[in-house]
Amino acid sequence: MTQQSPQPRKRAVVFAYHNVGVRCLKVLLAGGVDVALVVTHEDSATENIWFESVISVCKAEGIRYITPEHAKGEDLLAAVKAAQPDFIFSFYYRHMLPASLLDVAPAFNMHGSLLPQYRGRAPVNWAVLHGATETGATLHEMTVKPDAGAIVAQTAVPILPDDTSHEVFGKVTVAAEITLWKVLPALLGGTAPRTVNDLTQGGYFGGRKPEDGRIDWSKPAQEVYNLHRAVAPPYPGAFTEQNGRTYVIERARLAAQAPAGLPPGLAVVDNDIFGVCGDGRALAIHSLLADGVAVTPAQLREQLNAQLNA
């Protein structure tokens, strides 16, 4: 009886960063994929690095990695071609891959939403900001147009009423791992399904900046609360400026009962801090920061009184 030769392992070039990059890279390794090259980013000294390191995984596993400044260089293209990949994967890599790279091998991206919903940048933050009750992770074919390729697989997770983006991102990371793990054998075998990514549904969203966390207290409390949840630490946080000081909300909940008769903005009532909103409802603020330091109700009351007496 003639023994059959084992099938050669599929080779991949992986563009990866952040927690999703780490977990999905580990799924490929566990699934027997030969990761010939990882393309990632050096951490920025100006960014709050609260997430796991793809570079650390590469060092631990002995995987070659490079950190080009962008994805359009000829050197990068040559390195990817030299790796002779059967697949290209992108897991939370921060640059768009040009057509020249996408032409090297079939390419797939893991996106942090249930496509076609919340295409583009910061999908988890946008979902929370808009009060969505569900999101997830989607593996899809990569095209030059971002988040437009056919859907291969996706996994949904709930967004609970008080979840912050950080908490939801943790769920999405697990959803990404599950999505890739379940579909990887079929993907490697060439039998993975494809579903049309209907771009007439959902919408495309751009990146977010710290300035986008500015609070407009004239808005309804639910809208202000969603902003807080969307950008709460370790993101830059929802902030307000009063009397020349910038206050950042670290932790808050919708108040069960709002203080009556107060104008929109920060207030201290019975030694508790509130953010009064335009609809008369309020946020009960459990932790308020100024210059990164917690502000007590007594300190805030003194600062607000100084503003009134100025």
Score class of each variant (00 low, 15 high):
residue 110 M to C: 10
residue 282 A to S: 12
residue 77 L to I: 09
residue 167 E to N: 06
residue 213 G to K: 03
residue 23 R to G: 00
residue 53 S to W: 03
residue 185 P to K: 03
residue 241 E to M: 10
residue 276 V to M: 08
residue 93 Y to M: 01
residue 292 G to T: 05
residue 155 T to N: 05
residue 121 R to G: 06
residue 11 R to N: 12
residue 246 T to R: 15
residue 15 F to H: 01
residue 37 L to S: 04
residue 32 G to N: 06
residue 58 C to A: 03
residue 251 R to K: 15
residue 250 E to W: 08
residue 239 F to K: 02
residue 228 H to T: 10
residue 276 V to P: 02
residue 174 V to G: 00
residue 142 M to T: 11
residue 36 A to T: 13
residue 139 L to N: 04
residue 177 E to Y: 02
residue 41 H to E: 14
residue 259 P to M: 07
residue 67 T to M: 07
residue 61 E to T: 08
residue 309 N to G: 09
residue 58 C to H: 02
residue 300 L to P: 01
residue 89 F to V: 05
residue 63 I to R: 02
residue 114 L to K: 11
residue 217 W to Q: 12
residue 148 A to L: 02
residue 130 H to G: 13
residue 263 P to R: 04
residue 69 E to K: 15
residue 25 L to W: 02
residue 23 R to F: 04
residue 244 G to N: 08
residue 280 G to P: 04
residue 228 H to F: 15
residue 144 V to S: 09
residue 246 T to A: 05
residue 170 G to I: 07
residue 204 Y to P: 02
residue 79 A to N: 01
residue 154 Q to Y: 02
residue 191 T to M: 02
residue 267 A to L: 09
residue 187 L to I: 07
residue 20 V to E: 11
residue 40 T to S: 14
residue 102 L to C: 05
residue 160 L to F: 11
residue 298 A to V: 04
residue 18 H to F: 09
residue 178 I to A: 05
residue 220 P to H: 07
residue 83 A to I: 07
residue 177 E to R: 08
residue 61 E to C: 13
residue 67 T to C: 15
residue 92 Y to G: 00
residue 303 Q to G: 06
residue 6 P to H: 09
residue 30 A to W: 04
residue 155 T to Q: 14
residue 243 N to M: 08
residue 161 P to G: 13
residue 216 D to Y: 04
residue 16 A to V: 06
residue 279 D to Q: 01
residue 282 A to Q: 03
